[in-house]
Every structure is written in structure tokens, then in C-alpha cells.
């Protein structure tokens, strides 16, 4: 599995965690630039966005997730749920990974009640 595929799966995992309003790109500028290039060249876009950043560090993996949380659930609860879900998913997909570090950052707290 490529890091890009892993990122896409983990983006889905994070988005499904309770209290998450949306998953935001970790590198917005790079993402935007890539989109401009692919639309300029009329390249097909990938099926799902790969917003979660995956960095390999020797035998370990560092996963960085940026989210917008919904105001209806306490943000600390949401962030812990995201970290737990990510950790579980990486464990399933890469049981050999010894050290899995997870960083979850809320960039925005969505005030919409229904979000």
C-alpha cells in the first residue's frame, strides 16, 4: 500500500469519527497547487482526498491529522476519538509498525449545531 492510499483510508477513518465536522488538508498550499496542476493538465483527480499526512520514520509511522470539530461534541473528546480510530486502523493495516505516533490538531470548531 502506498502512503497516498494509506492517507486516503485514514482520511476516511478520521472523517467517520464522532464529532468530526470535516478533515482538512495538512498542507493546504501544496494541495491547492497540486489541484491547479491536475486541472490545468486535465488529469483525473483521485477518488478521495488524501488529507492525512503519513511520514515513515524507520520502523515507525507518524500520522498527522487536521480536523474541524463540531461544536456539539467537546473537542477533547473528538480529538481522542480520532486518535484512537487512526491508531486502530494503522494497527490493522500495518501490524508490523512498531512506533505509531498520532498527532491530531483541531484547526476550527464548527459552530453549526447540525454539523
Amino acid at each position: 500500500m502506498t502512503d497516498d492510499e494509506l492517507s486516503r483510508l485514514l482520511t476516511e477513518t478520521a472523517a467517520a469519527a464522532p464529532g468530526v465536522s470535516s478533515v482538512l488538508p495538512t498542507a493546504p498550499l501544496r494541495e491547492a497547487a497540486a489541484q491547479v496542476v491536475s486541472s490545468a493538465l486535465d488529469l483525473p483527480r483521485s477518488d478521495a482526498d488524501a488529507f492525512v499526512q503519513v511520514d515513515r520514520t524507520g520502523a515507525g509511522v507518524l500520522v498527522t491529522v487536521h480536523v474541524s470539530t463540531a461544536v456539539g461534541v467537546p473537542t477533547p473528546t473528538t480529538l481522542r476519538a480520532v486518535a484512537r480510530a487512526i491508531r486502530g486502523r494503522v494497527g490493522e493495516l500495518h501490524p508490523e509498525a512498531i512506533a505509531v505516533s498520532v498527532r491530531v490538531r483541531a484547526l476550527h470548531i464548527d459552530p453549526r449545531p447540525g454539523a
Binding site: E12, A15, A16, S21, S22, V23, L24, P25, D49
Partner: peptide
């Protein structure tokens, strides 16, 4: 489970 794209896109 909700589709990641639909939830992640409209930043």
C-alpha cells in the same frame, strides 16, 4: 460510514 470525500471537501 460517511464517505470521506463528501465530508472532507467543502473546507
Amino acid at each position: 460510514m460517511l464517505n470521506a470525500r463528501s465530508r472532507a471537501a467543502p473546507a
